[in-house]
């Protein structure tokens, strides 16, 4: 289980998180939604240890990410996670295959033949057989995201975080990425956190939804519970209205 407790983060005068709380069950996929600029990506960075919280706690399994004493301890907890970044964040100088091998290469836990075998397996899982030797700059953003998913999956982590998985994609390719996330979740059973501002599209990959606004989780529940929420912020966001309590940036 992932537990987020009373998380606070501010940048100067700007308060981004002001006591966010959330529980995520093992094996479930939760979508964290909210308008742009509400701190969803900051929350993701704190969960993954890429950013330090001012106050509060993130517990992954039975270890506290925010309570990690040093970067070495944080890195150890990081190894339980995979991340798909907004623009895939593939390494430009490596081929697609080398990008997928990379997380295993740096861990030095498996033999080279096993690393290659496993990486090829996950590259096939995301439908990119035949593109092993292409460089990230030579393929489309949709393919790069697929490689990003394979790279997140290859270490077989218990938690995968997807930061705006269909940013920069046309609706058709965006749909393909969502389907890929759903398929891989069914197959590998990881716990997933999907950061998105796109509803209802994101509902197809998640079983639960949480909305972040004003630095706090405004509502959390199943998709039906979320859609039926009486919270005015949620209602406005779901309806896509301009008028309401949500202040657009």
């Amino acid at each position: 289980m992932i537990k987020i407790r009373d998380l606070h983060k501010r940048f100067g005068e700007q308060v981004v998180l002001a006591g966010a709380n959330l529980d995520i069950e093992d094996g479930s996929v939760i979508a964290i939604v909210g308008p742009s600029g509400t701190g969803k990506s900051v929350l993701l960075k704190i969960i993954t240890g890429l950013m330090l919280a001012d106050f509060g706690e993130v517990i992954v399994g039975d270890e506290s990410m925010t309570g990690a004493k040093n970067s070495e301890e944080r890195r150890r907890i990081c190894r339980q996670m995979g991340v798909l970044f907004q623009n895939a964040a593939l390494f430009d100088s490596l081929t697609l295959f080398e990008n997928v091998c990379f997380p295993l290469d740096v861990r030095k836990e498996l033999k080279e033949t096993e690393i290659k075998k496993r990486s090829m397996h996950y590259l096939r899982e995301v439908g990119l057989r035949g593109f092993e030797n292409a460089l990230p700059g030579e393929v489309s953003i949709g393919m790069r995201k697929r490689v990003g998913i394979a790279r997140a999956l290859v270490t077989e982590p218990r938690l995968i975080l997807f930061d705006e998985p269909n940013t920069g994609l046309d609706p058709e390719v965006g749909q393909e990425i969502y389907e890929l996330i759903s398929e891989t979740h069914k197959k590998f059973g990881f716990t997933g956190i999907v950061i998105s501002h796109e509803i209802p599209e994101v509902f197809q990959v998640c079983s639960r939804v949480a909305m972040l606004y004003g630095g706090q989780i405004q509502a959390e529940g199943t998709i039906d519970e979320f859609l039926a929420s009486n919270n005015q912020v949620v209602k406005q966001f779901v309806a896509g209205n301009i008028q309401g309590p949500i202040q657009l940036c």
């Binding site: 991340v83 970044f85 623009n87 964040a89 740096v106």
Partner: peptide, 10 residues
């Protein structure tokens, strides 16, 4: 975010 990607892979 390639530097963040490195960090996320420990």
């Amino acid at each position: 975010e390639q530097v963040d990607a490195l960090r996320s892979m420990a």
